[in-house]
Design a protein around this nucleic acid. Structure first.
Length: 555
DNA sequence: ATTAGGG
DNA sequence: CCCTAAT
């Protein structure tokens, strides 16, 4: 990261480099290559699905020629992304594509690390990105990007990109998360390894080691988790393209499979799915914490303070805390009227949390000797991105879905950085483009009513985002689409400049969906507007919206 | 337990 | 996002 310039340069030349690298690597990875090929040839699940789905572009083909097997794969992916929006109009297409890209871009940083989890998506993305850029922006000035890597100067960037507005928009979103292009470079070798989605391969070639090293290099930041999420995201995105094809399953299976193969993956898995083990650990922690707290409280004179806090544990607080424990205690506590037990626990933990916060301020490490440190870390992490970052490396355990992939970073920042004023923080995560897309896809699949399902399937990785959230977001999207689509061109520009640049492609999709699955109540206004939009099921939409929505859901 | 609707 | 009412 430090030497951005060189990296950037490299990146720019990446396509060329890629080839070179590949060649050089090939000898080393011969086995791998073979394996990969084998996989490709073989009708493996993952592979098949992907292969079947994707068509190769001319460009892609070229790519193929130049590059090795791995390349092939990637190319395919790229195609896929392109194919994503078959339904939408061309414009939409472009937009969508870009959007997808954007969504992925953040991943780029971490992609390298994680191909293990979902090698497929990751690697592909990277390559994809690469290819795409090469195609579209031969000159591509990364410099600006690099300079603003931290910032979301998406707009500024956009012009640079072959003048596709959409791109700009998408980028802006993703750009929030610093786009460390340089990383790509690092990744390349890893990719070369073509761990791809075949964990087995990786293990063979010893990719793992490499990956690890990389991680270290990258730093304390826990990339793994994000990656995982990303993975999911990516897969989802991809899936979205092929929803009709039922690829979902494939993807899912993919997820499941991948983890098992490599140790590395396994870690991820832990975070990803609330594994029983993890839960157990957490519980333990809680218990301990309780004890500790008690004693410590008693001993310390802070008792009064504690009491105060105790007395008024805001729901929010509890929720937040429980958020962490949500997986542990799952289900029960969610409702505000939680049973006394849970509540108590939550309160206590919260209390602790408060104390901790204070403690931190005062720098009073009382719990450390007992291993309180470990405890602390988790909570801090839990609190939110900013804090967690530092501890992340240490307490990876805690970081579960919560620290979401790409979004986590920006969101966390946006959320609130006040560690100390823990109470004040409001938990709200900005919706990233990828999330929105996911949501839209989900709606398109399941219909409007089934938020739980959507949540389960598409947002399983993100602990936050309750079904209600999804619904709300959808509502908002509808509104947005209405207003925006209503007044097309003129406002568009404005919209772009707006803080939340929602890709019009997405909006279009939303509007489409809205026409298909009218949202209760809102549909009236919407219908009139959305009429102009292509609606696959026009007649139904007007007639009986309710039934439609229900009907749309083919369980 | 989920969803819809409103704040 | 949060909360409440309705199913």
């Amino acid at each position: 990261m430090e030497q951005e310039a060189p990296f950037l340069k490299k990146y720019v030349n990446m396509k060329f480099q890629k080839v070179k690298v590949n060649e050089s690597f090939i000898p080393t990875l011969e086995d791998e290559a073979i394996e990969v090929e084998h996989l490709l040839a073989e009708p493996k699940n993952d592979h098949v699905s992907v292969d079947g789905v994707f068509h190769f572009d001319e460009n892609l083909e070229k790519c193929l020629e130049m590059e090795d097997n791995p390349c092939r794969f990637e190319c395919g992916l790229k195609t896929n992304s392109g194919g994503l929006d078959s339904n939408t109009t061309q414009e939409g297409d472009d937009n969508l594509k870009f959007g997808v890209f954007n969504g992925m871009m953040p991943e780029v940083d971490e992609v390298g690390n994680l191909h293990s989890t979902n090698g497929l998506s990751t690697a592909c993305e990277d390559y994809l990105l690469d290819v795409e850029f090469a195609e579209k922006v031969p000159d591509l000035d990364y410099i600006p990007r690099g300079g603003s890597s931290l910032e979301t100067s998406s707009e500024s960037h956009s012009p640079g990109f072959s003048g596709s507005d959409n791109t700009a928009v998408g980028i802006s979103e993703s750009s929030t998360a610093s786009i460390p292009v340089p990383e790509c470079q690092n990744d390349i070798p890893d990719k070369k390894t073509t761990c791809e989605f075949h964990g087995a391969l990786r293990s063979k070639c010893g990719c793992q080691a490499r990956v690890k090293g990389k991680m270290q290099l990258n730093g304390p930041t826990s990339l793994e988790v994000p990656n995982l999420d990303k993975l999911e995201n990516a897969s989802n995105l991809v899936a979205s393209g092929m929803f009709s094809n039922d690829n979902e399953k494939d993807i899912i299976s993919n997820h499941g499979l991948t983890p098992g193969r490599t140790s590395f993956t396994s870690t991820n898995v832990q975070y990803n799915e609330a594994s029983p083990v993890r839960q157990g650990v957490k519980r333990k922690r809680f218990g301990r914490r309780d004890v500790l707290t008690k004693s410590s409280v008693e001993a310390s004179k802070v008792g009064t303070l504690t009491q105060k806090r105790l007395r008024k544990p805001t729901k929010r607080y509890i929720e937040e805390v429980s958020d962490l424990s949500s997986k542990c205690i799952k289900g029960k506590r969610k409702s505000s009227t939680t049973p006394s037990k849970d509540k108590l626990l939550g309160v206590r933990s919260r209390n602790e949390h408060h104390q901790m916060g204070f403690r931190r301020l005062k720098s009073v490490p009382r719990e450390e000797p007992f291993g309180g440190a470990s405890i602390q870390a988790p909570f801090g992490l839990r609190v939110r991105g900013g804090v967690s970052k530092n501890h992340a490396s240490l307490s990876r355990l805690d970081s579960d879905e919560e620290s979401s992939p790409e979004e986590s970073e920006d969101d966390s920042e946006t959320t609130i950085r006040s560690e100390k004023g823990v109470d004040r923080r409001k938990h709200q995560r900005l919706w990233t483009l990828s999330e929105v897309i996911k949501l839209v896809d989900g709606v398109s699949h399941y219909g409007v009513g089934r938020w739980t399902d959507i949540k389960r399937l598409l947002f399983s990785s993100s602990a936050y985002r309750t079904p209600v959230d999804l619904r709300d977001k959808w509502r908002n999207l509808l509104r947005a689409s209405c207003t925006q689509l209503q007044s097309d061109g003129e406002d568009e520009q404005k919209r772009k400049h707006a803080s939340r640049p929602l890709p019009i492609a997405v909006l279009h999709r939303v509007s489409e969906l809205s026409s298909i699955y009218p949202y209760p109540r809102e549909r009236n206004s919407k219908l009139s507007r959305s009429g102009h939009v292509t609606s696959p099921i026009p007649s139904t939409s007007k007639g009986t919206p309710f039934s439609l929505s229900r009907r749309a859901i083919p369980r």
